[in-house]
């Protein structure tokens, strides 16, 4: 049985976090000889303790379930090795690659694969909730989706459109003047693989128009 707890994972001097995100810390780990990451959701001091416990528990359980379903549906994402329900931590497969937010220039191929993976995820009834370039990994095996911390089981067009919108926003900030082309490639691949794409795109327009003080399209 594993003995790592949330506490000692966070304080053990030898174990430096591999990455420290807003929501969770990732520690290098191994699982029966395979390279793994231990994802620990830390207590947030700023949140009311009851709210904090509810959120961390809910999100860890949901993330574990989403990972299983997404893998089964053929989405390129890490395999879930172990779910520690007491400490809200997950042991997941380590994937080698570069974050799409760090590759410098996002290629058309990247944009296409991001569209295809998102379509698969949506077809499996999952909305990612934070589908930005920082949560996509360019690996030798293609684009992989990571960090399902905010993912939800839903086919609600609003949530699906949220994923599309967020990714397109991150293309805008990261592209070197060719955001338009990348968005077009992303959308083409998405619609080829997801029958409800038209409905999703029209909701994207609605959401953009709804935000405060947006320039009117």
């Amino acid at each position: 049985m594993r003995k790592t707890t949330t506490e000692d994972a966070g304080t053990k001097g030898a174990r430096k976090p591999f990455s420290k995100g807003a929501e969770a810390e990732l520690f290098p780990d191994s699982w029966y000889g395979r390279k793994a990451l231990l994802k620990v959701r830390k207590r947030k001091e700023y949140r009311h303790p009851v709210l904090d416990l509810n959120l961390r528990g809910r999100r860890a359980r949901r993330e574990a379930k989403v990972l299983r379903v997404a893998r089964a549906a053929g989405v390129k994402c890490p395999e879930l090795f172990f779910e520690d329900e007491k400490n809200f931590s997950l042991t997941i497969e380590f994937l080698n690659g570069n974050l799409l937010s760090r590759v410098g220039k996002i290629s058309q191929e990247h944009a296409r694969e991001a569209g295809a993976q998102l379509a698969k995820l949506h077809s499996a009834g999952i909305a990612h909730g934070d589908y930005s370039a920082s949560n996509l990994l360019a690996t030798p095996n293609g684009i992989c989706v990571i960090d399902f911390g905010l993912a939800e089981f839903t086919s609600n067009v609003e949530e699906l459109a949220g994923d599309v919108l967020l990714f397109e926003k991150s293309l805008q900030t990261q592209s070197l003047g060719n955001a338009g082309e990348l968005v077009a490639e992303f959308r083409k691949a998405y619609s080829r693989n997801f029958p409800r794409s038209k409905e999703v795109f029209s909701r994207v327009r609605m959401i953009a128009a709804r935000a405060r003080y947006r320039p009117k399209a």
Binding site: G129, D130, L150, L166
Partner: peptide, 8 residues
């Protein structure tokens, strides 16, 4: 309800 959508 606790609605955080990424950074929104």
């Amino acid at each position: 309800p606790y609605t955080v959508k990424g950074v929104d």
